[in-house]
Design a protein around this nucleic acid. Sequence first.
DNA 1: GGCCGGGGCATTTTT
DNA 2: TGCCCCGGCC
Length: 743
Amino acid sequence: MENIIRELNESQKEAVLYNDGPSLVVAGAGSGKTRVLTCKIAYLLKSGYQPHTILALTFTNKAAREMKQRIAAITDDYMARYLWMGTFHSIFYNILRRESQHIGYSSDFTIYDASDSKSLIKTIIKDMGLDEGAYKPGLVQNRISNAKNCLITSNVYATNKNLNEYDAKAKVPLIRDIYKKYQIRCYNASVMDFDDLLLYANILLRDHPEILEKYRNQFKFILVDEYQDTNFAQHLIVRQLSEKHRHICIVGDDAQSIYSFRGANIDNMLRFKDNFPECRIFKLERNYRSTQNIVNAANSLIKKNREQMFKNVYSEKEWGNKIVVLAAYSDHEEGYIVSSQILEMKMRQKYSYSDFAVLYRTNAQSRVLEETMRKHQIPYRIYGSQSFYQRKEIKDIVAYLRVIINPNDEEALKRIINYPIRGIGSTTIDRLQAAAVEKNTSMWNVISQQENTGTPMSKGTLAKLKAFYDIITDFRSKNRELSAPEMLEYVIKYSGLADILFTDTTAEGISRQENVKELMNAMTEFVTLRREEGAENFSLTDFLVEISLLTDQDEKNRDEKKDVVTMMTVHAAKGLEFENVIIAGMENDLFPSMMSQGDMRAVEEERRLFYVAITRAKQNCIITYAKHRFRNGKTVTASPSYFLKDINEKYIDYPNNMELPAQNRHIALFPEMPKHVEMPKSSITATEGLSVGNTVRHDKFGEGKVLKIEMESNDLKATVEFKNAGRRTLLLKYAKLKVLKNG
DNA sequence: GGCCGGGGCATTTTT
DNA sequence: TGCCCCGGCC
């Protein structure tokens, strides 16, 4: 342990050793953040903290697993496995399962992924007879998700004036009803979506002080990684759990905040000091990853952002090569350039394929790039777009598993009730669903009580339903006897899926079979890993949890050892590093995205995204753009991104193009003109702009200072000391407080 | 109830 | 361009 601490640099060491109170570690890109976190946790264990009293929230499950292993190696102790370490979603899923009776859920609840929840929203919109042109499922889904991330429950949503007015203006006034129905149907199906995990975790802690107390006492030290990407729901959980013992350490880099579309709020980090005024700030500024040129170039770029914490990231590695910008005539030629660059560099400098990453802003760009990679016979692997667990054959099997654990899971049930074909058609399914909605129960309950519900159905249909019911019931009882891997095999065989899968000998059929085998491998691997970690009991449920909450990056273990080029979106590349990074499609309206035009905050986020992309590179960074690109069915002309101009020209080379990017044209033309109306700040979001210590103005009471902000039955209220009107407690939902000054 | 073909529409990022 | 949805037909 001492040796390891000795190897840290001064600021890393300080960050590791200070554990007497709250701390904020500002960790620049490549500054050895993971090392600090690992070392700190090991140090805490050595100082006498019991592992189960440490809660460490990471961005991916993979990161958690790797850190646990490293900690175990440092402390030379099997205890590391008892650390509470994982993503917000998986940790609070476990807590919610444990405490499910307090929120009225069964502990066997399952998880809706984004497509399940979209599909349910679609169903509801149809049921309500709404115009699907106006009520776009994706849009509604976003609104509901945003609301949840701000802890706006469906009831609060329905009664919130701002939100209702906003929706009315947007010609979608009934979103509030959709939201309500959606929550009811999720509840009846015994499922939660991703956002619900955080929402219900908050409700649990809010409504059950004894449970809050229990976890507060249990978690004597809390660490959170990537704090710049937490949303309000996550922030509030952390704050509540830690505000008593105040042993909290948050780590993050405001320059890498790229998830605001998911509700992440950079202010959680920037204003951490408001909640924990005594917090100490440590800055990790030495970059161990990239050459000086790359670090300097990235610094010069991010300086153009207004909102940021001051820091001075530097590298002491060699100076390195300049960033190279290459122009292509078309997106196809761009692909060609990318491929030839890889081949050429590989040949000249003995890189292997896995030393290269091709990054792009949108998934749609991958197609053309892929095509050229194939033409040049460059092996590659795409992460993200169609993840393993999104594949149809995998989703089908997983749907069976979900129904076994939780037969009320409606989306899973609908997926398999007639697959393989059992003669249960859409008419029957619609009827079952309607009956379930009407009786305020699940489809499964309707099916199991078919005889006495009186739903008019033919004898034949009833028999088919009974047969389906028997299959599932058999699976459920077998699940009590068989191990998880045995159960998986049993399901594939007796569901009839095996017959479909293994008789198909087309190329796609074979690939599907391979995927199914891969799923079985994943299961075996999971079981082995659990055993190695010392877990005695693991069930199908555990496996299901694991795969429902996998992050994109978690899937990267797959094929990790293969020598292939990595292709992914910039978002997916967060936290990773490569010898050589190629950023493709560096064009206006693409990067920065068209959607960010004119909105300064959005543009700054795009710039941070570009910053993330550049700082993934250890040795070389190559940027390409095309002058013509095929988009949405037609070819459009494109111009080099004005972001290129933001990089100091000292660090960048334009060997093959004369035409330099135009000056910041969007910003110059439309300074800060918002393109979209922001989602109104509701009662609870109000804290985003409001914190203890702020000077505020109230229409009636005048100026005052915020003393306290707290949550009471779904609403946030603030206690304000007004200069002329004395101390008052106001519901933020109604009181329109204007922040005059940050305390 | 399933399959096929035409038309319309989409495009930002994802736990 | 390609995906998804719907309608028509088997």
